[in-house]
Simulated scan of single mutants.
Amino acid sequence: MRSEKFIKLVRLTAVAAACFTLSACTCNKQPPQIDASGVGTGGHAAVFPHFLDKSAYPDYRTVVVAPPEKNSSLFKNDVEIYKETRKLKGTQAWTDAAGGARLDADYMSQFFTPAYGIEISKDKTPWTYYLIQRVIGDAIDGGTRTPKKFYQRTRPYVYFGDRTCSTQEDDDKHVKSGSYPSGHSAYGYLVSLILAEINPANQDAIYQSGIKYGYNRVVCGFHWQSDVEMGRRIAAYINARLHANKEFQEALTYAKAEFAKAKK
C-alpha cells in the first residue's frame, strides 16, 4: 500500500515538473528563424522550408491514384463543377478566390484567425505562426510536387481555353505546370489539421476554412475539383508523418501551450 502511494507521488511530481518546464520553455523559448523568402503569391518552383527530409515522404506515384480519365464520370463531375463556378464571376466568391492564392504565413494566419478563435500572428502566437510558415514545404515540395510532375494534368482554364480569376501573367505562368494534385489545397488543409489539433473545440470551423482555401482554386479556374480533393488526402499523409518527427512535435507542444495561455 505504501509503495503504491509512493509511486503515485513520484508520478504526480514528474507531471508537475513537466508542466513547470513546459510553461517556462513556452515563455522563454522562441521559434527558430527560417528562410521563407521564396514563399509568396506565386510559383511552385520555389524551395520552401519544411520539417521532413525527402526520404520521409511516400512514393506518391504509388499511393496517389491517377487523375480521372476524360471519359469517366469523375471527369464529367469535374467539368460540371468548373462550368458552375464560371457563374461566380463578379460575385464575392470570385473576389475571394482572386485574393486567396497567397501562400505566405502572414496571409494564412489572417485567413485562419476567425475560425481559430484567437488572433494568429508572428508576435502573438509565434509557435503557431512558425508551424504555418514551415509546413508549406512538407505540403508542396514533399507532398504535391512529385505527382504533379508525374501526371502533368492539364489545368481546367487551359483545357477550355479560358481565363482564371487571376492576372494574365499568372495564367501564363501556370499553363505548363501540372494541375493534379493541388498544392494550395494540400497546404491549406494541412494547416487546418494542425490548428484543429491545437484547438479541437473549433475544429469544424477550422476544417471548413481549410476546405475553402483549396476550393478557391477551383473557383478561380486553376484546379479541377478532383485536384483539391487529392490535395486534402495528401495533407492527411503528411500530417501523420509529421507526428513522427520530434522537431515538429516540440513545436506543436509549444503552440498548444501558447494557445492555452492565450485562452485564459
Rank of each mutant, 00 (worst) to 15 (best):
E84H: 10
P32T: 04
S55Q: 10
D35P: 03
F48T: 00
A45N: 14
I81H: 10
Q30I: 07
L9N: 12
F51H: 00
V63N: 04
V10N: 06
F48S: 01
S37V: 06
T13E: 12
C25P: 03
V65L: 10
E84L: 09
V79Q: 08
S55C: 06
S37Q: 07
H44M: 11
P31K: 02
I81Q: 10
F51I: 02
K5G: 06
L74Y: 09
F75D: 05
K70T: 12
A36S: 11
I34K: 00
I81P: 01
H44T: 15
V39Q: 03
E4D: 15
V64W: 01
C27R: 15
F51T: 00
C25H: 11
A14M: 12
F6W: 14
R2G: 12
A45S: 15
V15T: 06
V64Q: 03
V65G: 07
T26E: 08
M1L: 15
T13Y: 08
L52S: 01
P68H: 02
K70Y: 12
G42D: 14
L74E: 14
V63Y: 05
D53Q: 14
A45W: 08
F51L: 03
V64A: 07
D53F: 08
D53H: 15
P49A: 05
P32A: 05
D35W: 00
T85K: 06
K83H: 12
G42E: 11
G43E: 08
S73G: 06
A36V: 03
G43Y: 08
G43W: 05
G42Y: 13
A18H: 04
S55I: 10
